[in-house]
């Protein structure tokens, strides 16, 4: 098409007009939606966080470039997907993670999770979460070492709220923040410890709502996933509404539900299937947080639901027109 410089016409199948949206515009819009949370995290954790971002994104994009060169296929780093994978992975890592670990995670995400499957669109698992899971398995200590935040923020300790909950119980979480009101406020605005990009619920929420408004993602996955966690926490945390709100804002749930569980490639294609995915992921999150060995389970819950996505797609199919009689 591009090589036509004479008067020949393009003769191709209909339709002859297309929407403006491209894969690249989708990916870069998601990146844009994350920028407020990214800026907040750099202000919160300083240069340590910036370095993690740089190594993760650089590693992911560089790895994609190298692999596509080696595979002899078109280099598509301009589509933003590798950039987004690196960015999302960085946001799920503790600040101050050594550079070589960042690069290792990026290579696991891009080379193993994405390109061994055939590249963008073919991967079964969310690449950013594969990178994180590989790092957690390889360097469990480094991956759970939470550096204290700079002194611009008061009232925080070196452990994450979910970490304290796992080891010392909910009373201790509340005690650290003074009272439950302060705790929820800190969880909402982000003045708490945690992975680089997961702390500020409000900024992630804004980014997520922006994506829903722009039609990039639909609301079904985040609402079903976070809603499931909230309902379960209300009944089993023993803390009622406070427990529900705490669990809904804790750990990587908000970033996971809005930005990873909405990764089009690795979730069911129908809205109904996506709701099943969201509810299933929410159940697994609470299972891991309350019964499992880890304080947090968003990463694994999404990876586990990625496994059943092909099966969901097989059984949950769109309602065909003209089958099953009249619909008013």
């Amino acid at each position: 098409m591009e090589t036509l410089n004479d008067n020949r016409l393009i003769v191709s199948a209909s339709p002859h007009v297309r929407s403006q949206e491209t894969v690249a515009s989708i990916m870069w819009t998601v990146v844009a939606a994350l920028i407020p949370a990214v800026l907040f995290s750099i202000w919160q954790f300083g240069v340590k966080a910036a370095l993690v971002y740089a190594f993760c994104i650089g590693g992911a994009v560089g790895c994609e470039y190298a692999i596509q060169k080696l595979r002899g296929v078109e280099v598509t780093i301009d589509d933003g997907s590798a950039f987004l994978t690196g960015l999302l992975m960085a946001m799920c890592l503790p600040p101050g993670l050594p550079w070589f670990m960042c690069l290792f995670g990026a290579v696991m995400a891009i080379a193993v999770a994405k390109h061994t499957m055939g590249g963008l669109g073919y991967n079964v698992f969310n690449p950013a979460h594969v990178g994180r899971a590989a790092l957690l398995a390889s360097w469990p200590v480094a991956m759970t070492s939470w550096t204290t935040m700079p002194s611009v923020l008061d009232g925080v300790t070196s452990a994450t709220p979910l970490g304290i909950l796992k080891q010392q119980g909910f009373e201790q979480v509340v005690a650290v923040f003074g009272n439950s009101g302060n705790l929820l406020q800190a969880m909402f605005f982000g003045t708490r410890n945690g992975s680089i990009g997961e702390t500020s619920t409000v900024l992630l929420l804004l980014g997520g709502l922006f994506l829903i408004y722009r039609g990039i993602i639909n609301w079904h996955v985040p609402v079903s996933m976070i809603g499931t966690v909230g309902i379960l926490a209300f009944f089993i945390s023993g803390q009622g509404v406070t427990g529900a709100l705490f669990h809904m804002m804790a750990g990587g749930l908000v970033i996971g539900a809005f930005f990873m569980a909405t990764d089009m490639v690795t979730i069911p294609i129908t809205v109904k299937g996506q709701v099943i995915f969201g509810v299933g992921a929410g159940l697994l999150v609470m299972l891991i947080r309350t019964v499992g060995g880890y304080p947090e389970g968003v990463c694994y819950s999404i990876l586990l639901m990625n496994c059943v996505t092909p099966m969901i797609d097989r059984f949950v199919q769109p309602k065909r027109f003209g089958v099953g009689g009249e619909r008013a």
């Binding site: 894969v23 598509t76 590249g119 963008l120 669109g121 089009m264 129908t270």
Partner: peptide, 8 residues
């Protein structure tokens, strides 16, 4: 034409 990203 690029690969399908299963956006639905």
């Amino acid at each position: 034409e690029r690969g399908c990203i299963r956006c639905g």
